[in-house]
Design a protein around this nucleic acid. Structure first.
Length: 475
RNA sequence: GUCCCCAUCGUCUAGAGGCCUAGGACACCAGCCUUUCACGUUGGCAGCACGGGUUCGAAUCCCGUUGGGGACGCCA
């Protein structure tokens, strides 16, 4: 039997990190077994589902390389089928009509809670035939839960991650599968859809673990084979609490905007809750070979943005500069104007050195800003401190000296060393003021490269500007 | 309240009874490299929640305690 998995988000908001990891595991598991990974949009809650959310989820998945192998299924288009199955269960006597109103049920639940009883449906209509007064009244369809006298007394799930999980059937009540307005409930729709989509392995968050027992009731009632289940633990925020907006960027699209690379995000997510020996940096290709759902841990893990940044830095360093350029330009031109070919050429020269020093595309763009700046860059605090009167004097002198240099990187380095020799100072003492003059910062790629990339005119101009502040005022 | 799940350095994890005086990674601290920063590299700090068993031997198995998390909807 071919493995078929699915990711089933509800479009009530953006795709967050936890969902992304669930999708990743589903895809990896399917690929590992040569199967298919599908997507089902669970949009049966019309009040909360939005088209914008659907599009955002699709975009997020596409960005992460987690688009499904088949066109997505929209659950809302399948309501007739859900109702059909519910009516079949009703016809077989495995389900029954229940006439309580939603308000009555809320009241019953609250009463049970107040009396510290389990808030379960008491089964009033389970064995009661509707009388004349029910004629024409709306009703919900409830599924008969197994009763101890009807079977083993417990429902068992062999979970691929959690192991054997069992629950007494007395914990299960008669759940509603079809609402009084004829729409299906989630627990019912999921089962019907998973069955019809021929899903063999349900990989999802372990917040669904206890729901699984209720879903098994539907499979069993219909005589369908249950799929295998794998409930993966949730991801928590750095403080251990449930992941929420308070924990920073939890939306996948936020991570993109912060300059994370999709493969880095997936690599990080893969290592949350799953490990393979001492391997840390794992390519998509390798992950498809070694990922095993049985190796997923059972404990919840915490989101660690610092480590994500580290992994992203690794991928950024390995990235092809050509591939990064458009994104860097986009970030640099957020203000509006485009750049001439000369500036882009300078950027291309510096990009490989710059990307080695950045942990995100955002940092990369920031660090590249000096390259495309018009004229001298602004100095940060540390940089300003470097430009002592003495340093400024030296800069002017150095500019004079370098104006005669051949503008090649190796030559420039040699000229700088020669200059330092002649002046009897360490290279560092001229490199730092020069760096500040050129970039506005005390940190930059190697100074010879920076000098070369900026070009003779631009470099000398910036040096003179930096030196200029301290020149005697013109008469 | 009831049920379910979980528990190794601050964090992510390796570990499936002796290979563990518990390994790796991030972060942190020192040193080295060096024209700055970063990278790299060397070393350091730091953990089997607790209590009982089982066993010649337990991070690994069992029970309990504590502490987390999740589920109990005509939401998904």
């Amino acid at each position: 039997m071919t493995v078929r998995t699915r990711f089933a988000p509800s479009p009530t908001g953006f795709l967050h990190i936890g969902g992304a990891r669930t999708a990743l595991f589903n895809q990896l598991f399917a690929r590992r077994h040569g199967g298919a990974y599908l997507l089902r949009i669970e949009d049966t809650d019309k009040a909360r589902s939005t088209q914008a959310a659907v599009e955002q989820i699709l975009e997020s998945l596409a960005w992460l390389g987690l688009s499904p192998d088949e066109p997505p299924v929209f659950q809302s288009t399948r309501e007739a089928r859900h109702a059909e199955v519910a009516r079949e269960l009703l016809a077989q006597g495995k389900a029954y009509r229940a006439y309580e109103t939603p308000e009555e049920l809320v009241a019953m639940r609250e009463r049970a809670m107040a009396e510290k009883r389990p808030p379960r449906y008491e089964g009033v209509w389970r064995d009661r035939e509707p009388g004349p007064e029910q004629e024409g009244q709306p009703f919900a369809i409830r599924l008969r839960a197994p009763r101890p006298e009807e079977g083993t007394g417990e429902t068992v799930v062999e979970d691929l991650v959690q192991g054997t999980v069992r629950v007494a059937n007395t914990e299960l009540d008669d759940m509603i599968i079809l609402r009084s307005d004829g729409t299906p409930t989630y627990l019912h729709a999921v089962v019907v859809d998973d069955h019809d989509m021929a899903i063999t392995h349900v990989v999802r968050g372990d917040d669904h673990l206890t729901n699984t027992f209720r879903q098994c009731m539907v499979y069993d009632a219909m005589g369908w084979h249950r799929p295998r289940f794998a409930h993966i633990p949730l991801i928590h925020g750095a403080d251990g609490a449930k992941l929420s907006k308070r924990h920073g960027a939890v939306s996948v699209l936020d991570l993109r905007e912060q300059g994370m690379l999709p493969d880095a995000v997936c690599n990080y997510l893969l290592r949350l809750g799953w490990g393979h020996g001492d391997e840390e940096i794992i390519s998509r290709e390798r992950a498809e070979k070694i990922f095993d759902i049985a190796d997923v841990g059972r404990a919840a893990s915490r989101m660690d943005y610092t480590k994500l940044a580290h992994v992203n830095g690794v991928y950024l360093r390995q990235a092809n500069p050509e591939a990064l350029l458009p994104e860097v330009l986009r970030r640099l031109t957020a203000a509006g104007e485009g750049f001439g070919t000369d500036k882009i050429a300078k950027l291309k020269l510096l990009l490989p050195a710059l990307q080695e020093r950045a942990k995100s595309l955002a940092e990369l763009a920031d660090s590249a800003a000096f390259v495309v700046a018009d004229g001298a860059p602004e100095l940060d605090e540390k940089a300003a401190a470097v430009l002592t009167p003495e340093a400024k004097g030296r800069l002017e002198d150095l500019a004079q000296f370098l104006s005669g240099a051949p503008w090649e990187r190796a030559d420039l380095e040699q000229w700088l060393r020669d200059y330092a020799d002649v002046k009897q100072v360490k290279l560092k003492e001229i490199a730092q003021p020069l760096r500040v003059a050129l970039t506005g910062s005390t940190m930059s790629p190697p100074i010879d490269l920076t000098l070369f990339a900026l070009g003779r005119d631009e470099a000398l101009a910036r040096m003179l500007t930096a030196a200029g502040d301290d020149l005697p005022p013109p008469i």
